[in-house]
Design a protein around this nucleic acid. Structure first.
Lengths: 347, 347
DNA sequence: GAATTTATCGGGAACGTTTGCGTAAAAAAT
DNA sequence: ATTTTTTACGCAAACGTTCCCGATAAATTC
């Protein structure tokens, strides 16, 4: 089963012209007579000619496509970010190739290799939670491939980065819970290597310290698979709830962790916020539909995608080597709902 | 900013060999001495040589990549289906390029054109809800490009198709509601052109008729943008609730419609199922977290993706033209929860 | 020792496109 | 009428790879 397309050569043959003439006519070159141009254009239209981007990629050594490396698309944050990416890329004439690591380092390496060999003009990366070795990115970056990191970033590579105000959000979240009377606040975090984890845990810590509370390591649990394995979230939760110093509130640090955490609480028959308050980092569209409605930190996913792709395309299209890089920090949206109601006033 | 890669020519130059020899050595051809082979292999390994798939695509006129055409990935059904697709494609050596139409016909046409010109070896398609004209697919299909439709299919093109048991699910859903004492069951459907809409509405109708109930057109509302515009779902809902014959139950026919419908009900301060029962077609992972928990029809998204890509790759790799096509129907999962509790026993 | 086979490699075309350079004919300038 | 310029087009190389067809030298056969 072969799938044949019309080429410039076919047009040339049909019209008794050389391929160069046809090519130039199609591009509207000034050195082609308007008669010939019209003839070529009309014929091309008639046979529905489409230039072969593969041939172009080979020749130009670029593909007008950019690769996106994320852990999974079945995740509100990333699918929203991808929509942001596409909204800009589309208008600026780039195509987006998405790859999922499913939080696996090996898979990330394979995907990045493939994208690079497919001649993507640049990479938009959010690291997998297993990734500690960055050589697969460093190699490409040193060879001149533009890369922009977003959300889960690294400081081992000097380039543009786009993140949410993770530190501040975690800080605000914790302060909010403290103000509402909660004192034993647990933090259910993602993998320890991830930048988002460090930033969020730091914000949480700082809020505690600023309020004269001790930082209790036992109240911070990490999900080293980023929540891909439900069991690990479950375990972390039961572990937390078994403590003598049982937490009265919990901050869930990612989308997956938030939903899993809610399910565990539900399965245990606990009531929110009476038994335990919950605040979740989640880009879910329906936090109002939970019962009770969920207090959330919503990351500016769409805008993060947009900013990241803008930076990347600027990098790609820059005539001179760029040496001045920036890390953009975008503001999250903190929406207070019922799941973190004041302890004293709870109905 | 150019990004240079090692080519077979570079290797040849470095080793004093011709490109053809290097190529053959890399492929393990028998007509290359084992010495030379070893030398080439070692050098290639050393400089981290990767064959250029673009050049290969150009030569072979195929790319070992398949294009996926869906309306949006920020949708549980489609992201799960894509995971199914990838799980198989990856193992069989194909790469997946995803494109989103955002339910726009024009965008779908552009995406399909681009995928085709990118020399995808085949297409996996779920139609946009605006699509009535299929010539963009027909043209490619007639030229020999393998296409498999899934979920939102068409009968204008003869090929493999994969769907869920939409008719049966809608039938079962309706029967379930009838058995539980609901008699004025509304149906909130997606765009009228879509196969899933027709199949589901038909199942709903049949269940009514089988129970001696009349089919009331006013109780069926269509969302012609597939729910991409929240307002239209809102309007449909308010319209339904304004009827003299106010419905006592509602079947929401897609993911988006289900969540929107729940939000509208919540905003109106109605209680489920006391004021109105709800059953939703949704692949949400958290129907237990809604309040009350939601009775759902969950499509076998992952498996549908798997089956569809299997059929497509078989088509692509088939030596002889395939003339025998099948439409696979996969079973959905109907889970009864609180939102459709029996009318009489409601607490 | 001559003829034939075998082993090992290189040349070059092809995939579809762009583009620098060359050139014939037509037009303009002398 | 000759020279110069312009117009309009073709040739060929290049991008990275594979593969058919030779070609050379060594090894084998008679």
């Amino acid at each position: 089963m072969k799938f044949e397309s019309i080429t410039i050569k076919d047009i040339g043959k049909a019209l008794g012209l050389s391929t160069s003439t046809v090519s130039r006519a199609l591009r509207g070159s000034y050195e082609i007579s308007s008669e010939t141009k019209k003839q070529v254009l009309e014929y091309a239209e008639k046979v529905n000619y489409r230039p072969n981007p593969i041939a172009l990629s080979l020749k130009e050594r670029k593909s007008r496509s950019i690769g996106v490396v994320v852990c999974e698309i079945a995740n509100n944050f990333f699918s929203q970010a991808i929509n942001g990416i596409e909204s800009i890329a589309y208008n600026r004439g780039y195509h987006v190739i998405i790859s999922q690591s499913h939080e696996s380092y090996d898979r990330e390496v394979v995907n990045v290799r493939h994208l690079a060999s497919r001649s993507v003009d640049g990479l938009l990366v959010s690291l997998s939670c297993e990734t500690t070795d960055l050589t697969h990115f460093i190699n490409l970056h040193e060879k001149g491939l533009p890369i922009v990191f977003f959300d889960r970033i690294t400081n081992e590579i000097v380039t543009h980065k786009v993140i949410a105000d993770n530190y501040q959000s975690a800080y605000d979240t914790t302060i909010h819970l403290l103000r509402n009377g909660y004192t034993k606040i647990a933090f259910l975090a993602s993998a320890p290597f991830l930048s988002i984890t460090k930033e969020r845990v730091d914000g949480y810590k700082k809020a505690l310290l600023d309020n004269g509370l001790p930082f209790d390591e036992k109240l911070v649990k990490h999900c080293s698979h980023g929540g891909m394995i439900e069991k690990e979230i479950d375990n972390a939760m039961t572990c937390l709830l078994k403590l003598k110093q049982k937490p009265d509130a919990i901050v869930a640090a990612t989308d997956r962790i938030t939903t899993c955490c809610l399910i565990t609480i539900k399965n245990l028959g606990l009531s929110i916020p009476n038994d335990i308050a919950v605040v979740g980092f989640t880009n879910s569209n329906i936090p109002e539909l939970f019962s009770p409605t969920l207090t959330t930190v919503r990351l500016p996913a769409f805008q993060m995608g947009q900013v990241a792709i803008e930076l990347l395309i600027d990098l790609i299209e820059s005539k001179r080597p760029v040496t001045d890089f920036e890390t953009k920090v975008l503001q999250s949206e903190f929406v207070i709902r019922e799941s973190s109601k004041p302890l004293l006033v709870k109905s």
